[in-house]
């Protein structure tokens, strides 16, 4: 099977500064990856590299066998930012529809999800709030709109940069469960950056641990916990074991 994303000896530099040093990595299609690492180690840079926002200084990045640019034009991936990045003058529904309007005049083929924007909002639990403006929604609700917006073009790869980092723990737990549901229903590949070890273990099939100064891949940890995962999984001995292991890795970084 073609990997969802493949990096070969990829480097990223900002001037003299090396943000990512020689990462080689294959992202298995359909899988859920959590990305952990000390702050400033290049997690966001890695997602921005994959999403064609910044070019590699050297090396190769491909998405489903295509260049990142071709994948961008084909809408094969979508991005969810830490602050939802909604347009404040558009309602929840209109924000979800934005990707269907953008890029049109460039003449690109825009894939459309089998689910309508309305149904996507329902999928993320926002039925009834379709016509609310972002400032009328809570932080958690705004983030859910952003997720629905990311799904509207039926992406095969979903890049999420600390999407729940600014939310309180209860909301975050709830959204984690909802995200797993979305993942199971859509079969999308997910790269999920977080700074929370429990969140990384709870969500991911694999955890990519990055190292700082310069940013590089440290270790890939398989999380062998069965899906569908429920909140109780957090109380198991294995969960604790994985968390403890990742904490040690993180401290060693």
């Amino acid at each position: 099977m073609v990997p969802a994303a493949s990096l070969r000896n990829a480097w990223v530099k900002f001037g003299q500064f090396t943000a990512i040093q020689d990462i080689s990595l294959e992202i298995e299609a359909g899988a859920f990856y959590s990305i952990l690492g000390p702050s400033g180690c290049g997690k966001s840079t890695l997602l921005r590299l994959v999403s064609d926002l910044i070019p590699p200084a050297s090396g190769d990045v491909s998405i489903f066998g295509k260049t990142t640019e071709a994948a961008r034009l084909a809408r094969e991936f979508a991005f969810v930012f830490q602050d939802a990045a909604l347009l404040p003058w558009r309602t929840a529904l209109e924000n979800v529809e934005l990707p269907l309007e953008m890029g049109r005049s460039r003449g690109i083929q825009i894939p459309v999800s089998d689910k309508s924007p309305m149904e996507l909002l329902e999928l993320v639990g926002l039925k009834g709030r379709e016509h609310a403006l972002p400032h009328e929604l809570s932080g958690g609700m705004r983030q859910r709109v952003a997720i629905a917006r990311a799904l509207v073009c039926k992406p095969k790869l979903l890049l999420m940069d600390e999407p729940f980092g600014a939310l309180d723990e209860m909301t975050r737990d709830h959204l984690n469960l909802q995200l797993l549901k979305v993942w199971e229903e859509t079969g999308v590949t997910i790269l999920f950056v977080t700074h929370s070890i429990p969140e990384a273990v709870f969500l991911g099939q694999k955890v990519l641990m990055l190292k700082a100064h310069p940013g590089r891949l440290h270790e890939i940890v398989d999380i062998d916990l069965p899906y569908p995962r429920t909140t109780e999984v957090r109380d198991t001995a294995e969960f604790t074991r994985y968390s403890a292991y990742l904490r040690k890795l993180l401290e060693a970084c």
Partner: peptide, 21 residues
């Protein structure tokens, strides 16, 4: 916001789309 512009870039928006929308 810079994020809105990054979003536009990921959506391969044209300059005029970014302007109007």
């Amino acid at each position: 916001s810079p994020q809105a512009l990054e979003l536009a870039r990921i959506l391969s928006a044209t300059k005029s789309e970014v302007f109007w929308k």
